[in-house]
Structures are given as structure tokens and as C-alpha cells.
Design a binder for these strands. Structure first.
Lengths: 344, 344
DNA sequence: TTGAAAGCGCTAACAA
DNA sequence: TTGTTAGCGCTTTCAA
């Protein structure tokens, strides 16, 4: 491990000059620049971000806390996050909370101890409201919620516009002649902002149009596909299959779809499916799912933009008031083949 | 942001004592410990890992470079990695190479500049052989390949035992009366160690048993499900559907399965599928895939164990020779419903 | 254009 | 048991 010291020795220049060359700052004679470059190459020198961070009081580290990294929805946030990191020369530290609020808090603390320049949080438990409210008061780095929000907390967020989503989806099926919707949710998670907003949105839009709205809730299992599978199986065996279902997300829908195939229920002839997420490749089902694209890429894009704005304001002592800190991102319907057109 | 200085001021103790309390080291009077704790609470003090790292010459940062984080196989490595990080009080920095060898090298350099204590790499291009060979000579932190290896490189690795996998899978179908196997691969990736080993392994095992071995290669598309879907579609339309296929992985198999459903081809009556990976919940297909569990959890477990051993040896100046640095992990068949039993 | 020196927040060795 | 001090590898300010 070579350091500036070694370069100083090799070149005979001073620490300050070496630093200037490496940072590409100040006025340094071309000849001396070359000397430094040569020494760097010879030594296989590599800058030490840690030391630089200590000196500059930032780390170029961005924290990303998710709930369950194996959940395909959350996976979708990683790539755009990496792209941001690449473009802004920073690195991502990740941590997973696994639906455990203690762990979530520990993760936050570790991130703050790691002196991340910014922190993005995708939470899944509602138990840390107070903790987050407190963070909002005490921390000076930007902390931004992803795809969820807390009603009584000042932390900024970028979420999916679930009311808009609800309206789009109800519109879509209404236009195709559907007059009855059965909403399928997972009980334990039904009060998280996105699930709640969407469910209530669908209910409201149904009321407006005189559509019959029904709701069924299922117990959380190992994964959402399993829940969807069992939900469909139960309906099939009890002969209570609705004409149209709104599963809470694509994973649920896929399980549902496969139980239908298994039992010879035809899609969309016997049951239509309006899914939510657009997380999987279209070949994940025999007929492409009709689903609502949540645009997590946009969520991350907006969140990182917001982060930059907040940082800039704080670094330069500007007023932060003008920055919009509560954003909702609109998605769009992906037209697949799982909604029967009743008007034909 | 409070620091030791503030605690010193508040308690009247010295820096060294404060440091001892916070590290839980040395002998400090109970009363003074309490003082320090009280001051920490009052100040909302949080340790600065960056400064600690600079002083101790380690970061407690572990680097993880993957190829495509949205690939479900790679996602499977994150959770066990996080578990390790949690148990060993370190944090994970991730980076994604996206099948770009330049980016892969840049990622490595950034990790080394971040002074990670260890680096785990899941690579997908074969172009950086020389770069890695060089790293093996110059870097003193443990750098470990995950689920792949390079033939002429000293870097340690933990890979899936693909020859064993091949044997297991061929055995399984042989016992059920199959005497012909069609192996489906993606051309561009067929020379990566796991793909190559497995394909050659299957070929060899077929030869041993007098099974007819056929191979088909497909062009890489956006995702593997799509490739699988088109592969099946092509076979169906050209009426050349084999009796048994070995798709290169679960994603490929799912696409294949769904094209079959779409066209009314029955599984396993018309075509049997022996898949590879066990990456998805079993409800991802109407009938559970018969697949080989790659046990990426085990791969990560072994890799982190290897990391600890190497670190320990280097930290204590022990000889590293005794550490096994080339490991192969054995998986097992998951018996699903996609292999027809021809013996009945 | 270059050099000298202080400092970032911590650890660790040593002295008291 | 506590305090003092040097130092980790860099940046930055100021003087030369």
C-alpha cells in the first residue's frame, strides 16, 4: 500500500503538490505532473477514499436499506441506484431489514456511523415511525423514503402514485365491460401506504362507477406466489371464482395464474387478472399479464435527483423550502392478455 | 456531529479513556464509564467508522461485485452475504458490472480504493483474466470468486460442482427411462466455467450410459425467460420437440414451459424438463420444476468462511498454505413434476 | 508554482 | 486506572 509519502519520496515534490496533481487542482508544472503520474504508475498507487473522506468530511458512500433484497420489487431499485452511483462517483452500501424493525433501526445507525452522504430507505414495518420522526429532526444528511411514506413524518419521499394507479386500472377494466372487482391483498401488509392507498383507491373508483367491489385478504406466507397460488386454489375448490381479480402484485398474480392452469381454469375466459408491478419478463406467464407498471426506475431517478438538490442546498447554505420533498410518480398500464373484453 | 472531543469536554476525562470505554477495552472505573455513556447519550454521539478505519487500517467494508443484480441467481447471493455482514459487524458495498469488462475493472479499482477488507466477485465476462491474474499477485486483501473460476488464475474461489450436478441430473432422468437429452444453452455464455463444466459433464455422462446427447445453442436476448420461450416456440413450430430438455437454468425453463402451455404442449407428457438453479418459488410454474438446487447460499457460506480464514492467517502471519482455496459445493435435485417416468 | 503545517476523528503505545 | 502523544492518508490554507 503506497501513499502520498511514497510519491513524495520518489518525486522529491511536496505533499501539497502531489495532492494537487491527484485532484487535478491548482497550477502544477506539466513536468511535475508527469513525475507524479510516473511515480503513481510505478508504485501501483491507489487513492485511499477513507483518508480522503476523513479530510473532506464526506464519504461518497450512499446507504440503501431495503426490506427483503430477494423480493423482485426491491431488486428493481438496485440497478438504477447503481447507475446513479456510477454517474456520481459514489458507492452503495446496502443493508436488509427483513421485516424486522429492530434490524431496520440498527441498519440505519450503522449507515449513519459509516457516515454515508445520503440514505435511502425502503421500509416495510410501521413500527419505526417515532424513530424516523426523530431522525428527521437530528440528522443533516438527506434521508429519503422509497416507494412508501409515513403519514406523520417529515422525511422526504418518492412514492408511486397509487391513487392514480387505482384509477387507471379500474378505468381499464370498466371500459372492457367489467362491473365487479375482487381485490386480493395480504392482511399483514395492508396498511403500508402503497397497499392502503391503492386498495382504498380501487374501492373509491368502483363506488364512483357503480362497480361491485369485493375484498379478500390472505395470510402472509413464505412468498407472494405461494399466497396467490393458494388463493386461487381455494376459490376453485369452493367454486367461488370471481370474473375479475386484482391481486396485490405480480408475484401474487403469477401464483394465481398457475393454480388456474393446474386446475384447468382458463385465463381470461374464466377469470380475468389485473396485476400490479410489471416486475417480471413477459414470458413468466403463458399469456402476458395485464399489469400496472410501478416504474421503480422513475422512483429511484426522482429520489436521487431530490437527494442532489437537498445536498446542494445544504452544502451551499441555500434555503431548502423550494425543494419539493414529497413526490408521487405515475406509472402506466401494460396491456397484456389477461383481461377479457366483455364488450365484444 | 459530535466527536470524542465533545465527550472529553463534557466528562473531563481524557481521549484515551473515552476511547477505551467506547471500545469496551482496558480497565476503566465504573463511574467514569457511566459518565461517558451519559455524555454519549446527551450528545447523540455515533462512532465514526471512517476515522476508526483510518486509525486501524481496516474498514469493516466488504465488497461484492456482481454482473447483473437483477438476475435472480445473483440476487440469491445477497441475503447470505448480508447475514455474514450482520454477524461480523461489517457492511457490504455492492457494484454491478453489467457484463462489461471495463466496468468490472473499474468496480474492482473502486472497491480497492474504498479499502474494503475483502472482495467477492461474481464475474460474467472472460476478458479480465489478465487483470485478475495481476490482482492475485499484488493485492493483500482476500479476493474470492463466487460460483465461477478462471483456469489460469490464482485467486481463490467457491464454485458449484457442476460435474457432480451433471451426473446427478443425468442419473435422475436415466433412472426414469430417458435415453435422449437435448441440452439448451446460450451461445455467448457457454464458455463460462459453470456452463462449460455442466454441459461437458452432461455430455460425458450421456456417453457413459449410451444416452443420445444433443445440444442447441441460442442467442442471448434481454432475459433468459425470453430465450427459453422462443426456443420452445421454434421447436413447436418446426415440430422438432425433443422428449427431454435440459435448459441452462430455471429462467430459461420457465420461458420454455410457458411457450409449451401456450401451444398446448403438455408437460411432462409431451416434453420433460430438467432444470437447473432452484431460484424461484415452486409456484412459478403450474407443476413444480424438477431442478438442481445450486445452493448459492452454501457457496456464499463457504466463501465467507474462506475469507475469514485467509484474513486470520494474514493478520497473524500464519502460513496460508493449509487453507483450501478452491472449493466446489455440491447441490441436490429438487424433485418436481416435469420429468415423465418412462419406466411405468 | 511549490512547500510547510494543521487538522479530520479515531486508535494504540507508552508514560504517569 | 488515566492522560499524553504520535500517527493513519489525505485536503486545505497560507506563506514563500
Amino acid at each position: 500500500m503506497s501513499s502520498y509519502k511514497d510519491i513524495v519520496k520518489l518525486t522529491g515534490l511536496s505533499l501539497g503538490t502531489v495532492s494537487n496533481v491527484i485532484q487535478g487542482k491548482g497550477n502544477v508544472k506539466e513536468k511535475n505532473k508527469e513525475k507524479v503520474y510516473a511515480a503513481m504508475r510505478q508504485l501501483g498507487y491507489r487513492i485511499d477514499y477513507q483518508a480522503r473522506g476523513l479530510a473532506t468530511n464526506k464519504t461518497s458512500l450512499i446507504g440503501l436499506i431495503v426490506s427483503n433484497i430477494e423480493n423482485i420489487a426491491e431488486t428493481k431499485m438496485l440497478m438504477p441506484m447503481e447507475t446513479f452511483a456510477e454517474n456520481h462517483k459514489c458507492r452503495i452500501i446496502t443493508a436488509t431489514s427483513r421485516n424486522d424493525s429492530d434490524r431496520e433501526r440498527r441498519n440505519c445507525e450503522a449507515m449513519l456511523s459509516s457516515k454515508v452522504d445520503g440514505l435511502f430507505i425502503f421500509f416495510e414495518s410501521l413500527e419505526n415511525e417515532e424513530y424516523f420522526r426523530n431522525l428527521a429532526e437530528t440528522e443533516k444528511i438527506p434521508i429519503i423514503f422509497l416507494a412508501r411514506y409515513l403519514d406523520n413524518c417529515k422525511l422526504p419521499y418518492v412514492a408511486v402514485d397509487n391513487q392514480y394507479a387505482a384509477k387507471s386500472m379500474v378505468d381499464f377494466v370498466y371500459e372492457r365491460g367489467h362491473r365487479e372487482i375482487t381485490y386480493l391483498d395480504i392482511a399483514e401488509e395492508s396498511m403500508l401506504s402503497p397497499n392502503r392507498d391503492r386498495r382504498l383507491g380501487v374501492e373509491l373508483e368502483c363506488k364512483k362507477r357503480g362497480i361491485v367491489y369485493k375484498k379478500r385478504e390472505y395470510k402472509r406466507l413464505e412468498n407472494d406466489m405461494e399466497v396467490g397460488y393458494h388463493a386461487a386454489e381455494e376459490m376453485i375448490l369452493s367454486k367461488s371464482m370471481p370474473s375479475l381479480v386484482f391481486p396485490r402484485d405480480d408475484s401474487f398474480a403469477i401464483g394465481f395464474y398457475n393454480a388456474c392452469i393446474r386446475y384447468g381454469i382458463r385465463i381470461p375466459e374464466d377469470v380475468s387478472i389485473m396485476s400490479f408491478g410489471n416486475f417480471y419478463p413477459k414470458e413468466v406467464t403463458p399469456k402476458r399479464l395485464t399489469t400496472y407498471d410501478r416504474r421503480f426506475d422513475k422512483v429511484i431517478h426522482e429520489a436521487t435527483l431530490m437527494y442532489l438538490k437537498i445536498r446542494e442546498a445544504r452544502d451551499n447554505g441555500l434555503e431548502e423550502d423550494k425543494i419539493k420533498k414529497k413526490l408521487f410518480v405515475k406509472g402506466n398500464i401494460i396491456v397484456g392478455e389477461t383481461i377479457k373484453d366483455l364488450t365484444k
